[in-house]
Every structure is written in structure tokens, then in C-alpha cells.
Amino acid sequence: MRYDVVGLGIASLDLIGVTEEQPLFGAKQSLTGWHEMGGGPVATALATLARMGARVAMTGAVGNDGYGQRILADLQTVGIDTQAMHVRPGTSHVSFVLAEPGRDRRTVWWHNDPTVLEQVPLEHELIRSARALLIDTHMPQVALHAARTMQATGGLVMIDAERVREHTLELLPLCNLIVVSAEFARQATGVVEPWEAARVLHSRYEEQLVIVTCGAEGSWCANKGELFHTPAFEIEPLDTTGAGDVFHGALLYALLRDDPIRLAIRFASAAAALSCQGLGGRGNLPTVSEVEALLEPA
């Protein structure tokens, strides 16, 4: 295998404003800091994997604008192979993030050009060259073909889903690892409580492993008929942007080195916690040794 993980999804440029005050709409407020860095769910998960020493590549598209050039350069800087990234006419995915240090909250506004992401060519050989495929919900039609390609090779398919979009539910039966937000789980099942939603998804989709992430409240996992909770690490967050993306990347890393599922989720939770001590999704990507140090008993 050429790669441990190939990702298909959004790569963005994140513009991060930092405030110490409670945000007020309709008012002028100063920022205490400003940062710019690459972002996006799949892209940040791959950056996490690369930081931990995994071989990773990404396929998707950016616009033929200055932002697109910066996004590609940033992916390459963090160790992601971008040979299968396409540059297409239009504007790239850009997010503005308002970070509130000390609070388990951030606000994100984003924009992309749908035509840039439509009918992105699928790199079948790239998919087959990897042990695992990570997808999000921004390019569902391409993701469907990619998941089927990976499924045929016997590799792992993980989905990162924050909300239900058109065709999203068609992807779930093709995924070995359904790792979704509490909001997605609620929308997909109609069940409010995350643990019950995890159980419903687990029974609905041919007994795949299901994890519902709940931020500071940890995560719920349903696997092989078992339902269990993994608490989040107690930290003072600087910025929670991208913590879920880091969780996905670290979880895949742990599973690909054959960690038992409970230990893999704990590893991913520790990585996500460490990421919250930096600004932006990639401001504090942890190494394996840093994660394992946090996991060691005091």
C-alpha cells in the first residue's frame, strides 16, 4: 500500500479571529489576535495523521484563486500528498472562525463555490492504494463511488458527518466506521439523546461501528452490540476549532495500528483535547508521544 489513509473532502483556508469579549452582533469589537491556516474536516484529519507519521494523500478540489494556492501549499507543508487535488474555475472554500478562549465554543462562517466541487474526477487507483478512506459530506456523489471502490478492496471507510445533507444517508451503509456529531445523529435518527442515537445507527446500518461525538461531554460508541461512553479530557480550551477533525484522524491512526476500540477512542479523545490548546484546527496538532504522555496515569 502506498498510503495509510486517503481523504476525499473539503480543504479550506481558515481565517481565525480571537476575542476575549462576549460577541455582540451589530457592534464594533476589537480582536485580540488574527491567524490564517489550512482547515477543513478531512484535510485537518489527514494533517493529524501526517503529524503522527502516517502516509496520507488527499483528493478533492480548490478554486483557481489565491486562496486555492494557499490551501494546496499548506496541505503540502503538513505532509499531505496533493497530486490528486484538482484546481477548477471558481472560488475556494474559505471559513471565518471566531474563537473565544476559555469557552467550549467557537463560531464558523464558511463559503464555497458548489461548481468547484461538482463532478470532481475520482482517483480510483489512489483509493485502492490506501488502507483506509476518510470522507465527509460535501461531495456525496463522488464519495459514494469512492466508498464503493474502497469497500471492494476490503479497506476501511470512515465518514465524518456534522449534518445531514442530500445523499448523506446513502453513504452510511458503505462505511465501516460511522463517526458523527450529536447533531447529525439526531437528524439521522430523530432521537435526541446521543447514546440512544448511537444505538439506533448501530442497529440500522448492518452493525457497523458507530461513534457519536459530543464535544466536552465526550463520545458514545456502539460496537458489536455494546454501548459505552468515553469522557472528554478536562482542559482549559484556547480554541475548539477542528477538535473533532483531529479526533477522526487520531482514531484512524490508532485503529490502523490495531489498538482495541476503547483504547483507540481514548487516544483520539486525548489528541482532540491537546489540539484545543492551540488556535485553529492545526495550531497544536499533537505527536504520538504527546498523546501518550497525556494518557499516562498521574
Rank of each mutant, 00 (worst) to 15 (best):
Val42Phe: 01
Val42Ile: 11
Val42Trp: 01
Val42Thr: 12
Ala43Cys: 09
Thr44Gly: 00
Leu46Asn: 03
Ala47Trp: 01
Ala47Thr: 05
Thr48Pro: 05
Leu49Phe: 04
Leu49Ile: 13
Arg51Pro: 06
Arg51His: 10
Met52Trp: 04
Met52His: 01
Met52Gln: 11
Gly53Met: 07
Arg55Ala: 04
Val56Ala: 01
Val56Asn: 02
Val56Asp: 02
Ala57Trp: 05
Met58Leu: 07
Met58His: 04
Thr59Asp: 03
Thr59Cys: 08
Gly60Thr: 05
Gly60Arg: 03
Ala61Cys: 12
Ala61Phe: 13
Val62Pro: 03
Val62Thr: 07
Asp65His: 10
Gly66Tyr: 12
Gly66Trp: 12
Tyr67Glu: 13
Gly68Asn: 01
Gly68Ala: 06
Gln69Met: 06
Gln69Val: 00
Arg70Met: 13
Arg70Pro: 03
Leu72His: 06
Leu72Thr: 09
Asp74Gly: 14
Asp74Gln: 15
Leu75Trp: 04
Leu75Arg: 05
Gln76Leu: 11
Gln76Cys: 12
Thr77Cys: 09
Gly79Trp: 03
Ile80Val: 15
Ile80Pro: 02
Asp81Thr: 06
Asp81Gln: 07
Asp81Pro: 01
Thr82Ala: 07
Gln83Ala: 15
Ala84Asn: 13
Ala84Lys: 11
His86Cys: 06
His86Gln: 14
Arg88Val: 05
Thr91Arg: 14
Ser92Asp: 03
Ser92Val: 00
His93Glu: 11
Val94Gly: 09
Val94Lys: 07
Ser95Trp: 05
Phe96Met: 14
Val97Leu: 10
Val97Gly: 04
Leu98Met: 12
Leu98Asp: 01
Gly102Tyr: 10
Gly102Leu: 09
Asp104Ser: 11
Asp104Pro: 01
Asp104Ile: 00
Arg106Glu: 14
Thr107Phe: 15
Thr107Trp: 15
Val108Cys: 07
Trp109Gly: 08
Trp109Lys: 05
Trp110Thr: 00
Trp110Cys: 06
Asn112Trp: 15
Asn112Phe: 15
Asp113Pro: 08
Pro114Ala: 11
Thr115Ser: 14
Val116His: 02
Val116Arg: 01
Leu117Val: 06
Leu117Trp: 13
Gln119Trp: 11
Gln119Leu: 12
Val120His: 06
Pro121Thr: 08
Leu122His: 00
Glu123Ser: 10
Glu123Gln: 14
His124Gly: 02
His124Asp: 10
Leu126Lys: 03
Arg128Thr: 03
Arg128Gly: 04
Ser129Ala: 15
Arg131Cys: 05
Ala132Gly: 04
Ala132Lys: 01
Ala132Glu: 02
Leu133Gly: 00
Leu134Lys: 00
Leu134Arg: 03
Asp136Ala: 09
Asp136Thr: 05
Thr137Ile: 14
Thr137Tyr: 09
Thr137Asp: 14
Thr137Arg: 05
Thr137Lys: 04
His138Gly: 10
Pro140Leu: 03
Val142Gln: 09
Ala143Gly: 07
Ala143Pro: 05
Ala143Met: 09
Leu144Met: 12
Leu144Arg: 10
Arg148Ser: 08
Arg148Cys: 07
Thr149Asp: 09
Thr149Ile: 11
Thr149Tyr: 03
Ala152Gln: 14
Ala152Cys: 00
Thr153Trp: 10
Thr153Val: 10
